[in-house]
Amino acid sequence: MAGLRQRRARRQSVLRWVVVTLFGVLFLLPLFAMLEFTTRGAGGSLSFETWRVFFDWAALGETYPILWTGMKASFWLVLLSVALTLVLLVPTVVWVRLRLPRLRRLVEFVSLLPLTIPAIVLVVGLAPVYAWVVYFVGGSSVTLFFAYTILALPFAYRAIDAGLSAIDVRTLSEAARSLGAGWATVMWKVVLPNIRSAVLSAAFLTVALVLGEFTIASLLNRDNIQVAINQLGKSSATMSVAVSLAALVLAFALLFLLSFAGRRRHRERKTS
């Protein structure tokens, strides 16, 4: 039997592997170079000194105080930005769908607006606003989470909106209310469990965004991990490359895990 189809499928899979492998190598090359760069000892030998320091947190804080401050700031920034983004966006978007459908376009427009306003532009306008923030709550780097919530808005909005589109919020809430539920119960017990994976994905995107943000922190003279990496680059290139590599790998792991979380939900829906 000829197997015309199988032959074509095989050709396609050869193409796929060639392309994926080729680009895989090209994209892994810099990562490998980073690894090599950070394990390069004197006279071409292997040395894990950089990584030893990296994992010895006490020593790390002592040797590279900027890095330690930056990491701490980024940690709090991640927590607060995710919290504020979700607290601000989820109830608003759900509420608008349920009760104020006329406002939907406006909320969408506002949420996606940061896409057309580059961070470098936002920072120009944020400078005077942050003068007031300093006046009211102080000048800590952690206050950046206000700005980061704005940056995360478009991505988080899209994720949550997509999640809500997949379910019929109105019917669900009408069903719940006809059974006697109040609005709070509708939100917590009915809507939220059904958009869990969308909320999760919005949170992950916010995490990645906050961990990677440099522009605003740097230009408002605040500290975060990226600012620290950049400053460290001037004195200790090896350590800054090591931190960069660790950050990239961590972000990859986060997103890879997320891809499973999202899929599982998807399959549940298909089989039910």
Binding site: P30, A33, I229, A237, L248, A251, F252, F256, F260
Partner: peptide, 24 residues
């Protein structure tokens, strides 16, 4: 999954870390 996760990191996380990747 691998490709999209890797792409997510490189596309959105980039910035300073990528600059250092290329310096290395």
């Amino acid at each position: 999954r691998l490709v999209t996760s890797a792409c997510g990191v490189l596309a959105q996380f980039g910035g300073v870390t990528l600059a250092f990747a290329f310096i290395a």
